[in-house]
Computed example of a mutant assay.
Amino acid sequence: MRKILGVDPGLKGGLSVIDERFNFIASIPMPVKTAADGSDRIDSRPIYDFIKEYQPDLIVFEQVGSRPRQKGVFKFGEGFGIVLGVAELLCDNIMFSRPQEWQGHQSLIGLSKKQIAEVAFAVFKAEAIYGKPRAGKRAVRDGISDSLMIAKFGVRFLE
């Protein structure tokens, strides 16, 4: 069975693996470590271990850009580069999809992060989408739900 890895590349992002029949295999929140200067930084080792363990046939990255004068652009680009570099070491088949594309092909445009998480949960039944309840409400890990839906979008590109 062929596997697809979806990547939401931000610090609050995630990595999710599904198979070509839309069966959930595994997810992890984006691994983060504290840098020497006290800032958060993407941790490449757990990403390497995760990708190596599941050996996806295709990796689909969310391709995002920055807005003018947006803070943290360099830091985001650094994190994106870390994840991409690790992915390229372990998989020859990598593609990129803008949010408008992967969301549009799945009728998700205009939905909130919570609504996208509900759709992802309905499709994959992945408890990893929800974190610990806060104030009586289930917390949404939108990095996990987005990465699942990015992977789902990628199934159409398997050869």
Rank of each mutant, 00 (worst) to 15 (best):
L111N: 07
D92V: 03
V86G: 02
M95E: 10
L111H: 12
L108E: 03
G110Q: 14
E101N: 13
S107C: 10
S97A: 15
L111R: 14
R98Q: 13
L108I: 11
C91S: 07
V83L: 06
E101Y: 10
E88R: 15
K114H: 12
L111P: 05
I94S: 05
V86T: 08
S112L: 09
N93L: 01
M95D: 11
M95Q: 12
G110C: 12
V83A: 12
L89M: 15
S112A: 12
F96K: 00
Q103E: 10
V86A: 04
I94Q: 05
L90N: 06
L108P: 00
F96I: 03
P99H: 09
H105S: 13
F96M: 06
L84A: 08
K114R: 13
Q103A: 06
C91E: 02
L111K: 15
G85Y: 02
I109S: 13
E88K: 15
G85W: 03
V86Q: 04
I82P: 01
P99A: 13
Q103P: 00
V86N: 03
G85P: 05
G81H: 03
K114S: 13
L108T: 11
G110D: 14
V86R: 00
N93E: 10
F96R: 03
N93W: 04
C91G: 02
K113S: 01
S112P: 09
H105I: 00
Q103D: 02
L90Y: 06
I94F: 04
I109C: 12
E88I: 03
L90P: 07
K113T: 07
W102H: 06
V86L: 01
S112Q: 09
L108F: 09
P99F: 11
L90K: 05
S107H: 13
G85Q: 02
I82V: 14
K114E: 15
L90W: 07
A87I: 02
W102D: 04
Q106S: 05
I94V: 12
F96Y: 12
S97M: 09
L89D: 07
G104N: 06
M95R: 15
V83P: 01
I94K: 03
K114G: 04
Q106V: 06
K114L: 11
L89P: 01
G104I: 00
L84W: 01
L90R: 04
L111V: 01
I109Y: 05
D92F: 00
C91K: 04
E88Q: 15
S107K: 15
L111T: 08
S112N: 05
R98G: 10
M95H: 09
F96V: 03
I94N: 02
D92L: 05
G85N: 04
K113W: 09
L90E: 04
S112Y: 05
I109H: 08
E101H: 13
L90A: 02
F96Q: 05
E88V: 05
I82M: 04
E88P: 01
M95A: 11
S107G: 08
L111M: 14
L108C: 10
D92H: 06
G104V: 00
Q106E: 11
